[in-house]
């Protein structure tokens, strides 16, 4: 175990090995480790962000759902209002229509009555003349008395 030239050889080897390790071994390993650490950190940050995004999206969805419900309610209300309006309008229209029809009916009835009245009057006049003719057949000249009968007809 005496000190000899082995010392020198080993020192050279030692320095060479340290140099080699520093140049060719340490950097790629450290780079890989650091790169992976960065990727893991990024991944974790992404996951955090995703959780936050999800929360935001859920809040947004809830909001939108609430909005949609409110809108639906509004629409239903409007529809109801419109329905009532339409029904009212229809009612009013129907009323006027009915009044019109009734008035028309009355007018027609009146015209018919007038016509019938006229007919009856004419028939009564004919009947009256016929009756008078029957009564006065022999004594009364038709031509001489027609003016009186006509006057009678006009009075009816």
């Amino acid at each position: 175990m005496n000190i000899n030239a082995t010392l020198l050889g080993q020192t050279v080897a030692f320095l060479l090995f340290v140099w080699f390790c520093m140049k060719f071994v340490w950097p790629p390993l450290m780079n890989a480790i650091e790169e992976r650490q960065k990727r893991i950190a990024d991944g974790l940050a992404d996951a955090d962000r995703a959780v936050k995004d999800l929360e935001l999206a859920q809040a947004k969805a809830t909001d939108q759902l609430k909005d949609a419900k409110a809108t639906a309610n509004e629409i239903i209300e409007q529809a109801n209002k419109r329905k009532a309006q339409i029904v009212d309008e229809a009612k009013a229209e129907a009323d006027t229509e009915r009044a019109k029809i009734i008035a028309q009916g009355y007018a027609e009835i009146e015209a018919e009555r007038n016509r019938v009245k006229e007919d009856l009057r004419k028939q009564v006049a004919v009947l009256a003349i016929a009756g008078a003719e029957k009564i006065l057949e022999r004594s009364i000249d038709e031509a001489a008395h027609s003016d009186i009968v006509n006057k009678l007809v006009a009075e009816l």
Binding site: Q10, A13, F14, V18
Partner: peptide, 11 residues
Amino acid sequence: DLNITFSMALG
């Protein structure tokens, strides 16, 4: 071997 340990220590 003392040479080996000493050479490293020397480095």
